[in-house]
Design a protein around this nucleic acid. Structure first.
Ligand SMILES: [Mn+2]
Ligand SMILES: [Mn+2]
Ligand SMILES: [Mn+2]
Ligand SMILES: [Mn+2]
Lengths: 162, 162
DNA sequence: TGGAGGATGTAGCCAAGGCTACATTTGAGA
DNA sequence: TCTCAAATGTAGCCTTGGCTACATCCTCCA
């Protein structure tokens, strides 16, 4: 067999991966998303607690997240520093306009991800579990695709006599 | 209007969210997944570098990930401690059996997530970008659902005269 | 109107995952 | 063979997000 250059180990994915410099951008993008995950979960949860119980207390957040109250208080401090919540010592936690904006957006995205997973046949338990992590990495374009698929599946289902 | 108990702010999602204690489990599950994301990206990338260039060097990993080489070296130390790679000072990095197992699994999962996003109409650039984060939160069940959908869409496409 | 107990705050610890700056080693080519 | 540039390693810094232990505050009820 004749020398063919540097291809000796069968690259295994021919049209697969993106170019190296595009991959760098993807990794950077994902690291950026990672840094906002916790903030998104917090503001979404705070909004839920306010909507259902009138106020969001550190102890409630801690119980829902399954972390210690000390962790919650420190994290809420960071959220306040970053302008997403306001709170005064020994008082409940409220969302700023910015925090509420993010909460509403996160909630819609989260719900759509769940709806989507359910639509493609994932069980309720797994859909909830996976959505909790997936949601933070779904761009607007992918979310739109999810919505399209949900529409198609529900359309097809009702067209064939529910 | 008569007192109706604690429902005054319209709970907004009736059958939406899971029960609080199920939600705790979901958050715990997601935190657990978060702790393995970086290891998965590293072993997958190391496998790619070995397959395409014969060896994986810290500087190559650093360039692909867009982080400093010092970060890579420290992380590789953790991977070695955890039994996923082996390396000797000033030498290249190799996968253990366990590391290779995880790399192969991660690569398959990653590729399927990309294929899935492309199948539902997401652009190539966004599919690659989103998949880099989504992959780590996709359970086996959800992955199976993805595979089903890819099969259906490809089937439908070829049925209607490609 | 006290307390007691629950909620909140504080201190200090840890590991992960980033970084820069500097030191050391390697190996390819002149 | 020797040198020097590139690769690797090390030190030390930072932030985040966990934890436990303990201190303080608030509030509700006896
Ligand atoms: Mn969410
Ligand atoms: Mn989440
Ligand atoms: Mn991957
Ligand atoms: Mn990834």
């Amino acid at each position: 067999m004749i020398e063919m250059g540097e291809t000796e180990a069968e690259p295994h994915q021919l049209g697969g991966m993106p170019a190296p410099d595009q991959q760098v951008e993807n990794f950077r993008h994902t690291r950026r998303a990672r840094r906002t995950e916790i903030a998104e979960d917090y503001v979404e949860l705070i909004a839920d607690l306010i909507d259902s119980g009138g106020e969001a207390r550190a102890v409630d957040i801690a119980r829902r997240l399954g972390v210690s109250h000390a962790t919650v208080i420190k994290t809420v401090g960071r959220l306040q520093r970053d302008g997403l919540v306001v709170t005064k010592p020994y008082r409940a936690i409220f969302l700023t306009d910015e925090g509420r904006r993010i909460a509403i957006w996160s909630r819609q995205r989260h719900e759509l991800v769940v709806k989507f997973l359910l639509a493609i046949g994932v069980s309720k338990e797994v859909a909830y579990a996976d959505a909790e992590g997936i949601e933070h990495h779904v761009s607007a374009e992918t979310l739109a695709a999810f919505e399209r698929v949900v529409g198609e599946i529900n359309g097809r289902r009702s067209a064939s006599g529910h």
